Computed example of a mutant assay.
Amino acid sequence: MLRLFLVGAAILMLGPVPARAVEQVDPARYVVETVAGGLDRPWAVAPLPDGRTLLTEAPGRLKIVDAAGGVTPVSVAGLPPIHTGGQGGLMDVAVDPDFAASSLVFLTMIYGTDDANNARLVRARLAGDRLEDVRVLFDATPKAGNSNNGARIAFLPDRTMILTLGDGFDRREDAQDLSNHLGKLVRLDRDGNAPADNPFVGRAGAAPEIYSLGHRNVQGVVVDPDDGVILASEHGPRGGDEINRLRAGGNYGWPVVTGGLDYTFARVTPFRDLPGYEQPLLEWTPSIAPAGLALYDGALFPEWRGALLVPALKERAVRVVRRANGRIVGEELLLGERGDRMRDVAVAPDGSILVLTDGENAALLRVAPR
């Protein structure tokens, strides 16, 4: 009897884990081309306006891939030292919206040591196969350990940018502390400074760069070009993965409010909702491990226009999250038949979908209608 009671209590503690019936996109609807293979821990993909593609590899490599699959290494000799321990390394790459005139790219990397590291934001000019005029714009508060780095970049219509920062895993309570950058999204101008209208500028003890707080590990962020809304995908532990609509000064709850399960299978907190905390647009428990985010705005898949594309490591697919009137109205699984861990996704200028698989022998894929 005691044994039955304990089992029942454990089930009650975990709470219900609803099953989602998510349909696979019929592979007969699309073709998949391997644009480049043999990649070593690729982390980010960013299309260039001329049809070429930039991608990063965590060990510290930046590459240009042309439409025919030719790969050109870009010299990163001018970059500051990159810490590659654990989940660290060279991470995001983002192409300046004015790239045709500026040739600027923005990169994130992990700086520091195993015991004190975090994300660094760098700006450089892409000159052929090398980076020039490298400038460090921002260093986030150091954290202990090599996980939960965030480090994604998105540009806002007012020429500022958002940088996502993880909670560092072992110091998750710091996500609620405004004096540091852990578990925060920060907003910066193109020179790495805190804009004067950031929500916590002038508050005693608060880091002026902070845009929002209460995040665990935001590994995807996009700005909807139609309305300027910022959307982010957040990686929970065993659950509590989220899609959030971000607002200046918003508190997204971690670790006080979350539907997620910890790695021990216990609930992180008894609270799923409290006054003063933002609720996600969408939550996944169990975890799918979202690792990036793109908004589909191309012409090749008109039925997905406005949808979010969410590459998932654990689920081994790209979730197509359809939206209407600011709400989530449906989900589908793209590329689930391949069984690959999906690291990043982007929309090419021609409307095809670029997908990076994950790992030490990964690939850049191009998905187009059949």
Rank of each mutant, 00 (worst) to 15 (best):
L14D: 03
A21D: 14
V22M: 03
Q24L: 14
V31K: 14
L39K: 07
V45S: 10
A46N: 07
P47C: 02
G51A: 08
L62E: 06
K63V: 09
K63A: 07
V76T: 15
P81C: 12
G89P: 13
A94S: 15
P97T: 10
V105I: 15
F106W: 07
I110R: 12
D114K: 12
A116E: 14
R120K: 11
L126T: 08
E132F: 03
D133W: 02
K143Q: 15
A144N: 04
S147E: 06
S147T: 11
I162C: 06
L165W: 04
R171M: 00
R172W: 05
L178I: 10
L188P: 02
D189R: 11
R190L: 15
D191L: 05
N198A: 13
F200Y: 15
A207S: 14
V222F: 07
D227I: 08
P237A: 08
R238D: 13
G240I: 05
I243N: 10
N244A: 06
A248S: 15
G249S: 04
G250Y: 04
P255A: 09
Y263T: 08
A266P: 00
Q279H: 10
P290S: 08
A291I: 05
V310Q: 11
R316T: 14
R319L: 15
L335T: 03
L335Y: 03
G336D: 07
R338W: 06
R341I: 04
R343E: 14
P349K: 11
T357F: 03
R370Y: 01
R370G: 12
R370V: 07
